[in-house]
Computed example of a mutant assay.
Amino acid sequence: MVTEEQVLEALRDVEDPEIHKSIVELDMVKDLKVEDGKVSVTVLVTIANCPLRNTIEHSVREALANLSGVSEIDLTIETMTDEQRAKFAEKLRGGKPAQSKPPILDMDDRILFLAVASGKGGVGKSTVTANLAVALARAGLRVGVVDADIYGFSIPSIFGIKQQRPTVINDLIIPIEVEGVKLISMHFFVPENNPVVWRGPMLGKMLRNFFGEVHWGELDVMLLDLPPGTGDVAMDVHQLLPKSKELIVTTPQKNAAEVAVRAGVMGIRTNHEIVGVVENMSYFECPGCGEKAYLFGRGGGDEVAQALRTEVLAQIPVASMDEGLQRRALFAEETPQGQAYSRLAREVIRRTGLHATVSQR
Rank of each mutant, 00 (worst) to 15 (best):
F159S: 12
V278A: 03
V123G: 06
G217F: 05
K245H: 14
V277K: 03
F189P: 00
G160V: 06
V221E: 04
L75V: 07
G119Q: 10
V214Y: 07
L223H: 02
F159R: 10
V358Y: 04
I169G: 08
H58F: 13
R12S: 10
V178K: 15
I274V: 14
A319S: 15
V29F: 10
I155R: 09
E273C: 04
E5T: 10
I150C: 04
L224S: 01
D16Y: 08
D74Q: 14
P252R: 09
K254E: 15
D108E: 14
G152V: 01
V214P: 01
M206Y: 12
P201I: 06
E15Y: 15
K292V: 00
I47T: 15
A148R: 12
K245Y: 11
G119Y: 07
Q315Y: 05
G180M: 04
K96E: 12
V123F: 04
R351A: 07
V221N: 09
F296A: 01
F88T: 04
E273P: 02
L44M: 14
D220G: 02
R309N: 15
Q239I: 13
A332H: 07
R269H: 14
I158Y: 02
G353N: 08
P287H: 03
T129R: 11
P227M: 10
G217H: 11
P242H: 08
W216M: 02
D74C: 03
P191E: 04
Q239P: 12
Q306R: 12
G324W: 00
